[in-house]
Nucleic acid binder design. Structure first.
Lengths: 247, 247
DNA sequence: CGCGAACTTGAGGCGTGTCAACCCCTGTGG
DNA sequence: CCACAGGGGTTGACACGCCTCAAGTTCGCG
């Protein structure tokens, strides 16, 4: 176990100031000028919190107090389905917000679990509302973030409502790839942070179907699979699958 | 055609002031005190707009400027699916907001169509942001509205991802019933404003499956159907269907 | 009253879930 | 160092729920 001194040093080292964070262009403070950034430093983000792999960030039913911005790592959000098991409602990576489901009733409607060792910036919600009354560009950015979340959910609805297994998985992989590319990663080499079962739960498919579809895509030369290590070799082909066109 | 004088009188009669609107307890101004209500009168809602049955409120790709609150009537929102036909993403009734999908990119991502003769309150978005910087309770209410929209979409995702046709349609009917009851209607007598095809599109089912499931529910004594006129005779039984329990 | 749209019902086929067996990898303990 | 256990992943066989196609009926509007 680390000594408390070491812990303190570390806290100081990765101090939570948005103005120097390299995620500021894809996170909530996007579009703020320098003065505004410095104004929210130390106010928007109270603390940064570590969440180890498998640990729960918040549970369904817990009182909602803060939003969380993923600073590093990877999360899933899920809600209990009728049969007792969890259904995954989304995956979040660096720069993405978690917890917006809790605003409506002051209680978290979902559970968030880290899929790898992660860190999140804790954004007390009352402070966010106060600051966004003072800083219009922060207000605008927050509203855009919520709106985009609505559009994302809507897209998944479409996926689940009218696409077959191939189309769903292809869309899922391309979406992951785009988000990784936007964060400076290659996009063609994807390391899955989640199990086949979690992918299936998110896409409304059984884990066997997910596995079979991976194998099929590999046989069709669209990608190569080695368990969690995926290499997308033909993204245009995957896009054709999404569009429902013949291979 | 009405004379212009009559039209003017009518406009004056149903003047768009939130403080006297009988929907204020289920619409955006919920939770505002009298002073705040009077402060937003004439500012939050610029005009009220009539939309006749079948008419489009806004189209996908149109510039986003305003949110719309349904004042009376019934709407569907939909987005073009890959095969050219539309996929329905939601149904909206009195007191519900339409257009939040457009905030994120300044462009409407969906299309909204009236399913009966309707009227909507036009809420210019820049004015809403200005007012919600001045009136914290309005800000809070708007944030809650967006959050609840996210949760609603999430629930539909679950429905589409892990429930069969019976469970989907039962959940849909109970949801409609709850929303009608919250607006002072009976809740057990439901007049569907949409076709079987639109229900199916929303629930990820074919119109034939929707029709068959209605017939099945009727045979099971859960409701009686006469095309668009539905009478829910056993809501507890429908709830058991939703929960996946045996009939 | 007549036409087209909406709805119902049936027959058949396909995609995906379920069940089951097996493999691979990793970590653990003897 | 090996044996073992357990979780994750792959693959096959089979069943079944829902889609598709098709025919016929009812409804609603001009």
């Amino acid at each position: 176990m680390d000594s408390s001194i070491f812990q303190h040093l570390h806290q100081a080292a990765c101090e939570q100031v948005c103005s120097h964070c390299n995620l500021r262009e894809i996170c909530l403070p996007l579009g703020l000028n320098r003065a505004e950034l410095e104004r929210i430093d130390k106010r928007l983000v109270a603390v940064r919190r570590r969440v180890t792999r498998g640990e729960t960030l918040f549970r369904r039913g817990e009182r909602f107090r803060s939003l969380f911005a993923v600073w590093m790592g990877f999360f899933k959000t899920c809600v209990p389905a009728s049969d007792g098991r969890d259904q995954v409602t989304g995956f979040q990576m660096a720069g993405e917000l978690i917890g917006m489901d809790g605003i409506g009733h002051g209680v978290h409607q979902a559970q968030a679990v880290a899929l790898e060792n992660s860190q999140v910036c804790v954004i007390p919600f009352d402070e966010l509302e106060t600051l966004s009354r003072e800083i219009p560009s922060l207000q605008a950015q927050f509203h855009k973030a919520m709106s985009r979340e609505i559009v994302r959910k809507e897209r998944v609805m479409l996926l689940l409502g009218s696409r077959n297994a191939d189309e769903r998985l292809a869309a899922f992989l391309l979406n992951l790839s785009h988000r990784l590319r936007a964060r400076g990663f290659s996009g063609s080499s994807v390391v899955l942070r989640m199990t086949r079962e979690e992918i299936g739960s998110f896409l409304g498919l059984s884990l066997e179907t997910v596995s079979r579809t991976f194998s099929k895509f590999q046989a069709d030369g669209l990608l190569t699979v080695r368990t969690r290590q995926i290499r997308l070799t033909d993204t245009e082909g995957l896009q054709r699958v999404v569009d429902g066109l013949p291979a």
